[in-house]
Amino acid sequence: MKKHLVSFTVNNDQYDLLVEPRKTLLAVLRDSIGLTGTKEGCSTGDCGACTVTVDGKSVTSCLMLAASANGKAIKTIEGLSSGSSLHPLQHAFIDKGGYQCGFCTPGFIMASKAFLEENPNATEAEVRHALGGNICRCTGYTKIIEAVMSAAELMRSARQAR
């Protein structure tokens, strides 16, 4: 079948790729671009491990055709830190022990980032609800939620400082 020319940015880098229509954004990120930080946990949109942001909104990249991402700005976990400087969410996940096996972590961090940017003052209950699309099987969520709440505070103070 005819491949499609798809142009988008991933973590601010421009990509122009010829892709089969059937390839998902997840498959292209992992297999064509080699950004394997985004994980495939279920391929049906039910676990959130493949969460990336597209034009600032979190999506399950396993349920989006790469062709549909044409012209968009995509952010993955690899684009969150610049050099050795980590995003507040990354700091908080380390400090609070918000991960164990780590497989769900990129998805959790990306989903939290999009949510906190929209809702900087979210309550714990709101965060728990908003992250319902991300499954973690190791932590029981307690330390993830602590990490996100602590990151929210860091992000608020960073915003105030600016």
Partner: peptide
């Protein structure tokens, strides 16, 4: 419907 990630699609 689903999660925020799903509802964004």
């Amino acid at each position: 419907v689903g999660s925020i990630q799903i509802r964004n699609l």
